[in-house]
């Protein structure tokens, strides 16, 4: 478990990062918390001749809670999310999800940006961000652009981010209504067998809006428009739950691994989804 040799860079500002990315192209990778990248380098599944550490770069930190939107700097750690009182109030699903990621040591290092940019279908933040309809800010030497979370993921480890771009921040519209992040895993520190992020708003006794995404059930996070739509206008009763579940099962495409075969995963996905919806609805 020894990585191949690499050059270590520790720039102080974003210009420095972009210059290194432009110079080394494919041979360079940025590192945030390193808790996905370093294991891959050690397994020699990632070959990174130039490693650019983002820890000393200015302007990538901080949590800002605005009236309409929340902004998370890319280098905000999972631990910071868990400990931020304002965030727990404004978007409690972030805390609920972060607490189900890995373990305290990993969360002390792992960042929002790294979790999102990594593109591993097992990461919990991408599905969560799709549920929340977040936007990602990408900065390259050519300029700044925003990409919607729901359009960011193309395939496992393939995202809309260009190699020379850095993800600097995540912007999340302030969520309304009830939430739930439900995750089944084999043990602490495990990626999901199935996980569901649900945010539901209620008007009177009916569901006004519902956003639902699931994790580790396809090669990308699965935002299921159909599942959300199946709930809107209903009292989130058994029939609506069944319809949402059916829609979601049509959108996921799990593969067999050590967690179990496809039939098991599909079944558990349905169960986890229903539990998440029920909990979110009870809080709406």
């Amino acid at each position: 478990m020894i990585p191949a040799g690499f050059e270590y860079h520790r720039p102080r500002d974003l210009e420095g990062v972009l210059a290194l990315l432009d110079e080394h192209g494919d041979d360079a990778r940025v590192m945030a918390g390193g808790h996905s990248l370093i294991p891959m380098m050690k397994l020699r599944m990632a070959d990174v001749p130039h490693l650019i550490d983002l820890q000393a770069v200015d302007g990538l930190a901080g949590i800002e809670i605005g009236a309409d939107e929340i902004r998370l700097g890319a280098m905000v750690t999972q631990t910071e999310i868990i400990g931020h009182a304002g965030l727990a109030e404004a978007a409690p699903i972030l805390r609920e999800a972060a607490l189900q990621i890995a373990d305290p040591q990993v969360r002390n290092m792992g960042t929002v940006g790294g979790n999102i940019a990594n593109g591993d279908p097992g990461n919990d933040m991408p599905g969560l961000m799709q549920c929340l309809d977040a936007r990602f800010t990408l900065v390259g030497s050519g300029g700044v652009r925003e990409v919607a979370a729901r359009e960011f993921y193309e395939a496992a480890y393939m995202t809309a981010r260009e190699d020379e771009e850095v993800l600097t921040a995540v912007t999340i519209p302030r969520p309304a209504g009830g939430h739930a992040y439900e995750k089944q895993k084999r043990k602490i520190g495990d990626y999901a067998t199935a996980a569901a992020a649900v945010q539901i708003a209620k008007e009177g006794r009916a569901c006004a809006s519902a956003a639902i995404a699931m994790t580790n059930l396809s090669d990308t996070p699965v935002f299921s428009e159909g599942a959300g739509a199946a709930l809107v206008g209903t009292a989130v009763d058994a029939a609506a739950l069944a319809a949402a579940s059916e829609a979601m099962l049509g959108d996921i495409d799990p593969t067999e691994d050590n967690r179990g075969p496809v039939a098991f995963k599909r079944h558990v996905a349905g169960v986890i989804l229903r539990r998440a919806i029920e909990r979110a609805w009870s809080r709406a």
Binding site: G260, F264, H267
Partner: peptide, 11 residues
């Protein structure tokens, strides 16, 4: 008796 094998038994 991991999750999926227990589930399989129930199934």
């Amino acid at each position: 008796h991991d999750h999926w094998r227990i589930w399989k038994t129930a199934n």
